[in-house]
């Protein structure tokens, strides 16, 4: 065992792992984190706590993860390369480990200009850091854990033991380089991978075939990313605007049909689309899990954490296994 986290134990057990996502609030509202943690607790093996996702200031991933941890939900803290140099990163990792956090996902982070795709003011004038990139962050974390050394070479008397994750966009451009991209993260030391949201199962499976040929699926645990669709518009937006995500027309049509069935009734339209969205999610979970080499799913119900319980149950992934620590 590298970290002894619940997520690591489930993955090692060979059962399909389930992670979810918890978006911290944009204010000092710890109760919101508590509330969301309660919604997710028991419905996943661990929940990612995002790190100022979409380049918007929120409760820090570490602090929110600590709150979730107190609530009995195992967090996957996230660490972007955007906001910290290697000194701050390592300091935060030590602190997180000291508070008992055991999973960490390494990501580059949305560029500071993103500002929730322009819906919020954000901080487009911020200076970004990118002292290290994702691969390098993974390697730093591995070096700390396995060699007991800081990146600069100083010794760590007590090393932080993290189960190290990285993200992967299987269908991003340039598509034929994406397997190499994954390989580099695995070579750097990624224990698990959470992918960008998958709607195009065919495309995903074709990339996974390459991954299997490279043997990467055995060296890391790939959790397929599922973004729960909430409306037809959301699917259309993701298809047109989110990098590395393409949504088959059939799925968009299903959602639009659900919307149309409600006529002018907006509330009903929302309910019908949410219902259809959950159905689609369950189908996607099954299709992803049926894909050889996939070891679990990462279900993101963005600002809709309450949906997770239903989805996990409907997918037959409930209850979550309870594997005691050694």
């Amino acid at each position: 065992m590298k970290s002894g986290s619940n997520l690591e134990r489930v993955i090692l057990s060979g059962q399909p792992a389930v992670t979810a996502e918890l978006g911290p609030p944009m204010s000092a509202d710890g109760h919101e984190v508590v509330k969301k943690a309660q919604l997710l607790k028991g419905n996943c093996d661990a929940a990612n706590v995002t790190d100022c996702q979409t380049a918007v200031v929120r409760i820090s991933s570490i602090a929110a993860a600590a709150i979730a941890f107190q609530q009995g939900l195992e967090p996957v803290m996230q660490m972007t390369c955007r906001d910290r140099n290697r000194i701050a990163i390592q300091a935060d990792l030590l602190g997180a480990a000291a508070m008992g956090l055991k999973n960490c996902l390494c990501i580059a982070g949305d560029h500071q200009s993103f500002s929730a795709a322009g819906r919020l003011k954000g901080h487009p004038g911020a200076k970004n850091v990118y002292d290290v990139d994702t691969c390098q962050l993974v390697s730093i974390m591995k070096k700390m854990r396995d060699n007991g050394l800081q990146e600069g070479g100083d010794t760590l008397e007590i090393a932080p033991k993290f189960f190290i994750g990285a993200s992967w966009t299987p269908m991003g451009d340039p598509i034929d380089f994406r397997p190499v991209n994954l390989m580099k993260k695995v070579n750097a030391g990624a224990d698990f991978i959470q992918t960008q949201g998958i709607y195009d199962i065919e495309g995903f499976r074709s990339q996974m075939e390459k991954i299997r040929n490279m043997g990467l699926h055995e060296r890391t645990a790939i959790l397929g990313g599922i973004i729960v669709p909430r409306s037809g518009m959301m699917l259309k937006y993701m298809d047109s605007s989110v990098a590395g995500v393409s949504v088959p027309k059939s799925l968009i049509d299903r959602m639009m049909k659900a919307k149309a069935a409600a006529g002018d009734d907006k509330k009903k339209a929302r309910q019908l689309q949410e219902g259809e969205g959950k159905k689609i999610t369950v189908e996607l979970i099954h299709q992803v899990l049926e894909t050889p080499g996939v070891r679990g799913v990462h279900i993101q119900a963005i600002e809709w954490e309450s949906a997770i319980a239903d989805i996990v149950k409907a997918a037959g992934l409930y209850p979550r296994p309870n594997i005691p620590a050694e």
Binding site: C81, F114, N128, D173, A243
Partner: peptide, 21 residues
């Protein structure tokens, strides 16, 4: 690279363009 990545690309590439613009 908008993020000065040494081991890119990140997930923000779309049709050869950067997520920034």
């Amino acid at each position: 690279c908008s993020k000065t990545l040494m081991n890119g690309p990140c997930g923000g590439t779309k049709e050869g363009k950067c997520e920034v613009s």
